[in-house]
């Protein structure tokens, strides 16, 4: 709830509090017990000699948290995973990042990690899927592919021996993102899934949920046409600019505001929830801008509480 500043009136405040309390009560007991703040004692079984990990300290024989977050236990190791933290990459993650520098044979990207990620020119395949040859000409033409400040999408390849993070973009679906907006949310709100690229057919919108908390909402681009559009760019800027169609733009803004609302309320971002929120706003005739108003926040919190309650009831009923 950090950074949520709403001007709520009396009833809205009561409704939001009830919804949040309900959400709290719906959470499994284990989950709420695992959440700690600084100076909270972490219950451990002293017999099996545990290993104290990150964010813990030994105080008079008790394990005490030194960070706010969630207690994680892996075999003997006990550590605290902080929520308000930078992104921690894992191999295979799909991320969205922004180019900050072009260095010899590589681009440096800002991905909300503790250091800049590196995308090697050799980690990019040619448009027809053939591996690049290391030529000097190719290297000189790197700005023809990505320039500074470009938003691109790539996959985490792994860590090098020196600890730097390498990315790769070997398929058509990766690459430059254009015509849309980039949103940043706390990385813990995006869970690793099978699918991070979403083409929302009904809206003609591409939604990319980067594992690093960078979320791209933009006009749908047909794979394979990307290279062509970049070539057109120079031409179109002098002509009358061909903007995103109004209908698509409305959907983009609506989805983007849904992401903003959900992340401010601290709900895990899944494509279903984002669409549901956007649909709910559209069906109840909430203007796109009014989605960021207090009333819609309260409604979203209430809807989520109801959804989770229903889910729990169904689960219990099935048992």
């Amino acid at each position: 709830m950090k950074g949520l500043h709403l001007s709520l009136n009396q009833t809205q405040r009561v409704r939001l509090d009830t919804a949040l309390q309900e959400l709290q009560s719906l959470a499994p007991a284990a989950a709420s017990a695992a959440a700690v703040t600084v100076a909270d004692t972490i219950p451990v079984n002293q017999e099996d000699n545990i290993l104290k990990g990150h964010g813990t300290v030994d105080q008079d024989g008790e394990v005490v948290a030194t960070l706010c977050g969630v207690v994680e236990r892996v075999n003997k190791l006990v550590y605290v995973r902080t929520l308000q933290a930078r992104y921690k990459p894992e191999v295979g993650d799909i991320i969205v990042g922004r180019v900050i520098e072009i260095a010899p044979k590589r681009w440096r990207l800002e991905i909300n990690f503790s250091q800049d990620a590196v995308l090697m020119l050799s980690s990019m395949n040619l448009p027809d899927g053939i591996q690049r040859r290391r030529t000097a000409v190719d290297e000189l033409n790197m700005r023809g592919i990505f320039v500074e400040n470009d938003v691109i999408c790539a996959e985490v390849r792994g860590f090098q021996h020196d600890g730097s993070l390498h990315l790769q973009a070997r398929s058509e679906k990766y690459g430059k993102l254009e015509r849309g907006q980039l949103l940043t949310v706390p990385p813990y709100l995006v869970k690793r899934k099978k699918q991070h690229f979403h083409h929302l057919m009904q809206y003609n919108v591409d939604l990319i949920l980067g594992c690093n908390g960078f979320i791209w909402v933009g006009e749908h681009v047909v794979v394979g046409e990307k290279t062509k559009t970049t070539g057109d760019q120079q031409k179109s800027s002098t002509e009358a600019e061909n903007f995103t169609p109004l209908e698509t733009r409305k959907h983009i803004c609506r989805l983007a505001n849904a992401v903003r609302v959900l992340s401010a309320l601290g709900f895990t971002l899944t494509v279903e929830l984002i669409i549901e929120t956007a649909e709910a706003s559209a069906s109840s005739n909430v203007e796109i801008n009014d989605m960021l108003g207090a009333e819609f926040y309260v409604q979203t919190a209430e809807r989520e509480a109801k959804r989770r309650a229903d889910l729990l009831r169904k689960k219990n009923g099935a048992r």
Binding site: K176, G180, C253, N289, G293
Partner: peptide
């Protein structure tokens, strides 16, 4: 820092009277 694509999107939004956060041209934020 904005890429060309994002700049184009922002300019287009202002042209079409629907900005990136859904506001109209003459609307304030909260």
């Amino acid at each position: 820092a904005l890429s060309e694509g994002e700049k184009h999107f922002i300019r287009g939004g202002i042209e079409q009277d629907i900005r990136t956060d859904g506001r109209r041209r003459l609307q304030f934020r909260a």
